[in-house]
Design a protein around this nucleic acid. Structure first.
Lengths: 261, 261
DNA sequence: CGGATTATTGAGTAATATCAATCAGCGTGG
DNA sequence: CCACGCTGATTGATATTACTCAATAATCCG
């Protein structure tokens, strides 16, 4: 049932927020009570076009979404991958018009949550505002890492890094194991993520397979040697901000700021 | 005098916030009253090391700073450039430990603003919280564009895009003209920004100079043909979110959300 | 089964990196 | 004032990575 999907998606979203922020029972309840429109989506469906002004945020209930930028020659660059529980364009709540677009990478289910309702929560509960800000921070942190990877690493290392990142995020979200997960992408799509050619992605995958580091068959990634992969990738998960929930803001006029352990 | 530098920096910071957010007189005054420690910095001075936990945010009063990531082989990738008025690591207020580092690119003056005080303002004035979140959004938007540039554009186009971006940002900040500005970077530093080799940056600059599009002499960029440069860069400033101040949150328990025109 | 993607392979090419000099500016100590 | 040593800019020659084009094989899906 549709309403079930909504609850399910919001629970995943809440879980994700709780990874980095502490929310009271009331705040948690408020998140879970967010309204939203459930929608089934196929692969390669553009949800937000670049430059469009939006009035709702896209929460991935199930499947995969990506944020993309388009070049004049038609080529795409995907600059963020979102898995179940991620809210793709949380930013849009603060800045409703952005330069990017949102597309589905794999079929699945999404929940469209009106900005209006998210704003209402952020106003009433400033720790929700903080949690959302923190989520944007994570997004920026991942982007910063992607810039570094694109700028300074070769194809092997970039590919390896992507698998490490997605593995860890999947595992953290309770979706799969970091060494074995379903990643419903075609090699062409992978090339849009990594800024490579489909041909080159194919060859790079083969080289990793030949070295028994990882295999990708039928869109299932199987990492045989995590340490080797992390080494190739120079993967350091610090940028995923997984140290556990951080401090809260004290409510009201209190001028003291609570800092967690 | 040092205190003058503090005021000066905060005014620039406020001005920057007002480009995208509306703040009341009281809120503006609160920003300008932020405390902070002024510090003169030389070029190539690391202010925050990767992975370090910080307790203050860095505001660029004058000069240039950059956020960087470091590879195992020692090479650096600069994934963000900050000009006067920018607060480099606003994110750190929400997430005090990040994976990146902050370094100076050119000599100048910075202001270290304690997180504690920023948090205090964000708690008391939720529109300041919104403005800061929005600022993080802008940062993410720029990063997303850089990912796209690094992934899908060649050296010429990337270099051109950087100059367009910095020009527009400088002009917007009231520091210079977009077609003529001082950018105190060496070619080697530029290469760290663009993910290229110093040698290649040099040759690419020469090619742009040969075509009378732009020249860079003594660290002063002179753009002879802005349109040509923007065309080479495929520059569309939408991602800089310059449409003017956006909506405010209504204060207090009000459940209605104010949306600007 | 047949038409569509998607994956794979090969050969040749273009972009960028690498290595190694040389050159130019510039501050400093003699 | 000038020689020295430094950093940054420039150049040339070569190596390497990744792209392009084009074809074929495998898989998916109705």
């Amino acid at each position: 049932m549709m309403s079930e999907a909504r609850k399910f998606g919001l629970r995943r979203f809440l879980r994700r927020l709780l990874d980095r922020s502490t929310l009271s029972a009331e705040e948690q309840h408020a998140i879970l009570s967010l309204p939203g429109q459930v929608r089934s989506v196929r692969s390669r469906q553009d949800l937000v076009m670049p430059g469009e002004r939006v009035e709702h945020a896209v929460l991935v209930v199930d499947g995969l979404c990506g944020r993309f930028d388009q070049m004049r020659d038609g080529s795409q660059q995907i600059n963020a991958i979102y898995i179940a529980g991620d809210m793709c364009d949380i930013h849009s709540v603060a800045s409703p018009r952005a330069g990017w677009g949102i597309t589905t990478i794999a079929s699945g289910t999404i929940l469209l949550v009106p900005h209006e309702d998210i704003n209402r929560l952020a106003v009433r509960y400033n720790n929700i505002a903080l949690a959302l800000w923190r989520d944007t921070t994570l997004d920026a942190s991942i982007l910063a890492k992607w810039v570094a990877n694109a700028g300074r690493k070769d194809a092997r290392s970039r590919l390896a890094h992507l698998f490490c990142e997605v593995g860890v995020r999947m595992e953290r979200a309770g979706l799969d194991k970091r060494t074995h997960f379903r990643l419903d992408v075609t090699q062409a799509r992978l090339s849009d993520v990594l800024g490579l050619t489909p041909v080159h992605v194919n060859r790079t995958l083969q080289s990793l397979r030949a070295e028994q580091v990882l295999s990708m068959d039928k869109h299932v990634v199987d990492i045989a040697d995590w340490d080797a992969l992390a080494c190739i990738a120079e993967f350091d998960p610090a940028y995923l901000l997984l140290d556990g929930p951080l401090f809260r803001w004290k409510a009201g006029e209190d001028t003291e700021v609570a800092l967690a352990s």
